[in-house]
């Protein structure tokens, strides 16, 4: 069983991991401790592997810092479901193998603290006995996630997505 951590619009990368807490300024090993350290201080203490982030519009806007999605991955976040994602965050998260779903109906149906069961590979999330089929990702995203990460994809396929 996993829980939902719900966020609003325009969660920027400074909220996810402030630049002052980057691995460059602190240490790579400590990165998961700094996820939402100021914006939502209970998050790094209480998040459990398998938990799901749900957010409204434009999740991950701002800088190109890959350590923002990396911190969430190392916290064990199993998927992020949002109305929409900012461009660089989307790319970084997919490269790292974090399943992202753009699905406003699912966002509306999921609330902070909900206990859910997620099957990311099947694109399915169950809450309160109701199963939501998440809107399918674009094919190239599915292919990267099926391989694991972008590095796995390129190793397995011997080419870039779209090549």
């Amino acid at each position: 069983m996993a829980r939902v951590w719900k966020f609003g619009d325009d969660i920027d990368t400074d909220q996810i991991v402030p630049g002052r807490y980057s691995p460059y300024m602190t240490s790579d090993a400590d990165l998961p401790k700094y996820a939402f350290i100021e914006f939502r201080p209970e998050f790094p203490k209480e998040v459990r592997p398998g938990d799901v982030i749900v957010a409204e519009d434009n999740f991950g806007c701002g800088s190109s810092r890959e350590y923002a999605p990396l911190a969430l991955k190392r916290c064990g976040i199993a998927a992020i479901v949002a109305n929409s994602f900012a461009r660089i965050f989307f790319r970084n998260a997919i490269n790292l193998g974090i399943p992202l779903f753009e699905d406003p109906a699912a966002v509306q149906a999921l609330n902070d603290g909900d206990v859910v069961e997620l099957d990311a590979a099947a694109g399915r999330i169950t809450v309160g006995g109701r199963t939501i089929e998440l809107r399918p990702q674009p094919r190239f995203v599915q292919d990267i996630l099926a391989a694991g990460t972008i590095a796995d994809y390129i190793r397995d396929h011997g080419r870039f997505p779209g090549e």
Binding site: S64, E66, Y67, P69, I88, R91, L96, I150
Partner: peptide, 10 residues
């Protein structure tokens, strides 16, 4: 355009 560490490494 800006990209993350993995894309720049590639």
């Amino acid at each position: 355009t800006g990209m993350g560490a993995t894309d720049i490494a590639l």
